Computed example of a mutant assay.
Amino acid sequence: MLDKPHAPAFPRAALFDLDGTLLDSAPDMLATANRMRDARGLPPLALETLRPQVSKGARAMLSVALPMLETDAREALVAEFLAVYREELGRHSDLFDGVAAMLDALEAAGTIWGIVTNKPEYLARAVLPQFDWEPRCAVLIGGDTLAERKPHPLPLLVAAERTGVAPADCVYVGDDERDIVAARAAGMPSIAALWGYRLDGDDPETWQADLRCESPHALSRPSGWRSRNP
Rank of each mutant, 00 (worst) to 15 (best):
G174W: 01
D94Y: 03
R184E: 07
S190P: 06
I141G: 00
I115N: 01
G143S: 07
L95Q: 13
L154M: 12
M188T: 13
A193E: 01
C170I: 08
M102D: 10
E88C: 10
A182L: 00
Q208E: 14
Y122W: 12
H152F: 08
L89H: 14
E177C: 12
E107W: 09
L154K: 10
D175V: 00
G143P: 02
F131E: 08
L103A: 14
T145F: 06
E161A: 15
D179L: 05
A182T: 00
P155Y: 05
Y122L: 13
D210W: 12
A192H: 00
P167R: 06
I115Y: 03
I115D: 02
G201Q: 11
H92G: 06
R136L: 06
V171C: 14
P153E: 12
K119W: 10
I180P: 04
P189L: 13
E121M: 02
R162A: 07
T145W: 10
I191N: 06
G142R: 04
A124W: 07
A166L: 08
A186E: 12
D104K: 14
A109V: 08
Y197L: 03
L194K: 04
L199Y: 11
E88M: 12
L128F: 12
G90Q: 10
C170A: 05
T117A: 04
N118L: 10
A105H: 13
G90C: 08
F96W: 09
S93E: 12
V99Y: 05
A185T: 00
Q130G: 02
A109K: 08
G114L: 08
D97R: 10
E205M: 14
P135M: 07
A168F: 05
A100M: 11
D97M: 02
D132F: 13
D175E: 03
V181Q: 14
A126K: 11
D144C: 07
G164R: 12
D179G: 01
D175Q: 04
E161H: 14
P120Y: 09
E121V: 13
I112L: 13
A185K: 03
A182C: 01
G110W: 11
